[in-house]
Design a protein around this nucleic acid. Sequence first.
DNA 1: TCTGGGGTCCTAGGACCC
DNA 2: TCTGGGGTCCTAGGACCC
Length: 410
Amino acid sequence: MTIRRILHVDMDAFFASVELLRHPELAGLPVVVGGAGDRGVVAAASYAARVYGVRSAMATIRARRLCPELVVVAPDHAHYSAVSSRIMDCCREFAPVVEPLSLDEAFLDITGAQRLLGPDESIATALRQRLWDREGLWSSVGVASTKLVAKLASEAAKPAPGLSGGSSGVCIVDPADELEFLWDRPVSDLWGVGPVTGDRLRALGVSTVADLARFPRAALESHLGAGLGRQLHDLANGRDDRPVVADAEVRSISHEETFGSDLTVIGDLRAELVVMAEKVGRRARRRGLVGRTVHLKVRWSDLVITTRSRTLAVGTDDGLVVARVATELLGSLPVERGVRLVGVGLSSLGPAGGSSQLELSLSDVGTPAGELPNGRGAALRAADEVRERFGEEAIAPLRRRTGDPSQGGT
DNA sequence: TCTGGGGTCCTAGGACCC
DNA sequence: TCTGGGGTCCTAGGACCC
């Protein structure tokens, strides 16, 4: 088994740095990108802002208290996406397989690239320099033999608050040093350990990765569940064979919004749902996808979350259909309780067009439910969906057509 | 200091099929 | 008629990631 070399690249303060490029007059000022309102949150903080203790995921209100002269810039996702795709293109000049993790992060499999591009250190430095030359943005790069260690290495290469590119920006971990590199760290550094699992582990007396590596595997699995227990025990012992995978398929598309003040009137919520569902539909169409499952998410004024979903017999990319299904789901919820956030989404995605959407539903209409795959009323659902899209009068001709295909139809 | 918006993956129970 | 088991789909919730 050959030793892999995996590179992780992570842009420094990405959204904030991009905004500083567009607004040179803000250079040196404490800048965050995020929501400005009472319920806004910091999405990214410039290094000048971090000096004040401002961090991403922090409520904007609190950030303003820490730094009264803070400049808050509204996010412009379309622009960040455009910059991101150029960054990913740049990465592909260094490795055949590039896996974007988010807009500002990617894994590159550089196993075997040394012959062409030189040692790990040269590859990392060259990538970093090219991103700077092309985009004017600094990044941090880590290289190791696993995804986990490569990501921790890029984190270790990050500049300290107050600086922006002063450190070398590169951290290479030799395979022989990887366990030591890992074991010094708190368990919360591991992928999959958040606040809840972190608390559970601490209750077991586990606080460092070394503690976790020594903890009996079976006991860990019984405390955390088989899946998570096994994964964490492997990671803590440096076992991480997750490959670098390009072109991961999108699994869901959603849009959600927190209101400035809670809504209690169903009509107001319906109006919001229509707008949001249309955005989801537009994004699905742009990607050439249809979704079979419509999701509704509600966050109540007490922050508790309720979700509802409904799976249709066929996929849709039509915002009106999504809105109508979501509205139905909303109908069963006590909105007078006070709705802070509403979200609508599509999953069970598949390619749009051809036989996948309408054709299938036409042939389903009138077919006994028992003869359909998953014979749980799929035909009825299909008929409902056709009715929703085209109205009651559309059903009759479809029945005739289904009964006698030679007659043709729509 | 009370938590935005975009996602991913996992779990668990019930329905249903073979 | 009763019983069991495996597999898949659907739904709700939850943890986590950036």
